[in-house]
Design a protein around this nucleic acid. Structure first.
Length: 590
RNA sequence: GGAGGCGUGGUGUAGAGGCCUAACACGCUGCCCUGUCAAGGCAGAGAACGCGGGUUCGAAUCCCGUCGCUUCCGCCA
């Protein structure tokens, strides 16, 4: 016999008169002395149960019902009834009906929970929530997040399956990689002194699957990186890992764009989100940096950077006697005090600027204070024109000889002001592609070129001749997917030709021998007929976080770790027994 | 490794040198109550204020140190 004939979310008016059995948790109890109302909760919803002495099978049943407390697990047998006139609860999906209990069985009593479960839990200390995660997940918000995540992943699997992709599992126990993030290591018992590494991503393996002829591979893949945590970073996280053969950049972009467009549109009613752009804008890296000061701009609002280098050429104002002057216009912020302006200046300094020029745009023009007092009228007019500012706005300018500093500082200011002014509509998903990244970046410390992504990223075809002559201007077939200011995915078309690979390795100062030691299996595989291929890896956690409207990825993971990378519920990591260490040939040096 | 924020009953907060033998809301316990749905009424239990030291006649409150959590920078090809 089943414990329940229906879930707590499905009974409607049409079920009136039906004899049903429900089971779940006591969500709330309202005891009126003579009659007791129980909001019974299971994963599917809430149903009001009415326990009336006149309707129960025996007085003992009512006595037992009086002893019910929150979170008791109970089973209720009774009849579905339309609620009396005027008693319907529009806040509940099942609010038209109630279940008149004949019998109530306590399947398991429960201790009083350490925190309330019938709210969203946002102001409960997170470590307490994590310690009792199994209770925390009972709250409606968290259950909803798990369901949205499931729906998302299910959609991905169906979407890719329909397009000829197959999901292939790759090893969790793999080999340490010298570059990139710190690895999580797993000691080998049978090979003393040797270690597996948990994959930072299945990058090499998916490329090998292309050599293997899989052609269209994906995996909902767990990835591990032993780096410090952030609101959007956990030591283990999940990527949609994907790789395709016989494709070029736009094939990958179009496929993925279709995936997120369709999911967002089809499931908008679930998570209350809509697309900002269709199709997704494609910004070059340079354009993103020049217009937004970031390679992962939040495109839910404007406030673009403007360039007043020409307008301030030859200025009497000393800070402007540099190579680049750009700014942003903070609309409606002319009410900022000197102190608030100083705070922004301090913020800009922390980001690497030498200072910040703040101009107040008053009804009669730029206020004659601070830098505003030192600029010529022509300069002010030029700046106002470029900024497109109106009276009531605040203009922020950064000047530096290094254009990257100007852009990134303004990008951070834009982000900061966007948050303060709440410019972003949290009902939208503003996806965009960032393309044409530099293939290399100059490593001043080591005095050499480093790959800005990884050494298997292909250069743009038309830039191949520049590899040796002008490495800094070579653009790659790397692309990032960004959304609402987050990098939510990155990938590239890979190098599949040996001669190109060797030219790249030479350029980054990697000897063939060294490369063989580090990536021998991959390089060897490429000699056996590697197809042209490329892929991408969207972050499932970050995307789910955005779809759920959550501020951090822990809210969309069932059992996340805290900032110290600890599982506070289970108490991991933990010391191990001496005997375990001995078997692993490990001696601690603490 | 660095910077900021926070740490007071079960939960969330108040408190700004003596009015604190620590207040409020929710929760909890008991009693009353047959139509509530954030039920209501009455009564009650529950914290020496993260920890250690210092200043002071007097510290939850000021100072120093320390621990924990969190956000950000570094880091994350």
């Amino acid at each position: 016999m089943s414990y329940k004939t229906h879930t707590c979310g499905e009974l409607r008016l049409e079920h009136a008169g039906r004899h049903v059995t429900l089971a779940g948790w006591v969500h709330r109890r309202r005891d009126h002395g003579g009659v007791i109302f129980i909001d019974l909760r299971d994963r599917f919803g809430l149903t009001q149960v009415v326990i009336n002495p006149a309707n129960v099978r025996s007085p003992e049943v009512f006595a037992q019902a009086e002893a019910l407390r929150n979170e008791y697990v109970i089973q209720v047998e009774g009849v579905v009834a339309q609620r009396p006139a005027g008693m319907a609860n529009p806040k509940l999906a099942t609010g038209e009906i109630e279940v008149i209990a004949h019998d109530v069985t306590v399947l398991n009593p429960a201790k009083t929970p350490p925190f309330a479960i019938d709210d969203d839990g946002r102001n409960v200390d997170e470590n307490l929530r994590l310690k009792y995660r199994y209770l925390d997940l009972r709250r409606e918000r968290m259950a909803r997040n798990l369901i949205i995540r499931h729906t998302f992943v299910k959609f991905i699997r169906d979407y890719l399956d329909a397009r000829g992709f197959i999901e292939v599992e790759t090893p969790i126990l793999f080999k340490t990689t010298p570059e990139g993030a710190r690895d999580y290591l797993v000691p080998s018992r049978v090979h003393p002194g040797c270690f597996y590494a948990l994959p930072q991503s299945p990058q090499q393996l998916k490329q090998l699957l292309m050599v293997a002829g899989v052609e269209r591979y994906f995996q909902i893949a767990r990835c591990f990186r032993d780096e410090d945590q952030r609101a959007d970073r956990q030591p283990e996280f999940t990527q949609l890992d994907l790789e395709m053969s016989f494709v070029d950049r736009d094939d990958v972009l179009n496929l993925i764009e279709g995936l997120f467009t369709e999911f967002t549109e089809r499931y908008a009613h679930l998570h209350g989100k809509r697309l900002s752009f269709k199709p997704f804008p494609r910004l070059t890296y340079e354009e993103a940096m020049e217009r937004f000061g970031s390679d992962k701009p939040d495109l839910r609002y404007g406030m673009e950077l403007f360039d007043v280098t020409a307008e301030t050429r030859g200025s009497e104002f000393l800070p402007f006697r540099v190579a680049h002057v750009k700014g942003i216009c903070a609309a409606g912020c002319a009410g900022y005090t000197r102190k608030q302006a100083d705070e922004l200046t301090e913020f800009a300094r922390r980001q690497g600027a030498k200072g910040l020029v703040v101009l107040w745009h008053d009804p009669d023009g730029i206020r004659n204070t601070g830098a505003g007092a030192k600029l010529s009228q022509a300069e002010k007019d030029g700046i106002v024109a470029k900024a497109g500012s109106k009276p009531g706005d605040l203009i922020l300018l950064v000047a530096d000889d290094d254009r990257r500093v100007v852009n990134t500082v303004l990008g951070e200011l834009r982000h900061e002001l966007g948050e303060r002014l709440k410019l972003a509509d949290d009902g939208v998903m503003a996806f965009a592609w960032i393309v044409d990244f530099p293939l290399f970046e100059w490593n001043a410390e080591e005095n050499r070129w480093d790959p800005s992504h990884h050494m298997f990223t292909a250069p743009k075809d038309e830039h191949l001749p520049l590899l040796e002559t002008d490495p800094g201007s070579v653009r790659s077939k790397q692309y990032d997917l960004v959304c609402n200011g987050y990098e939510v995915g990155g990938g590239s078309i890979r190098i599949h030709r040996r001669d190109v690979q060797e030219r790249v390795m030479r350029l980054i100062g990697l000897e063939i021998e060294e490369a063989r030691r580090k990536f021998g299996h991959l390089l060897e595989a490429f000699e056996y007929g590697a197809p042209p291929h490329g892929g991408i890896a969207p972050g499932i956690d970050r995307l789910t976080m955005l779809y759920c409207g959550e501020p951090n990825i822990r809210e969309v993971m069932a059992f996340p770790k805290n900032q110290q990378a600890m599982d506070v519920m289970a108490g991991a990591p933990s010391p191990v027994y001496e005997q375990q260490l001995k078997e692993l040939h490990i001696r601690l040096a603490l």
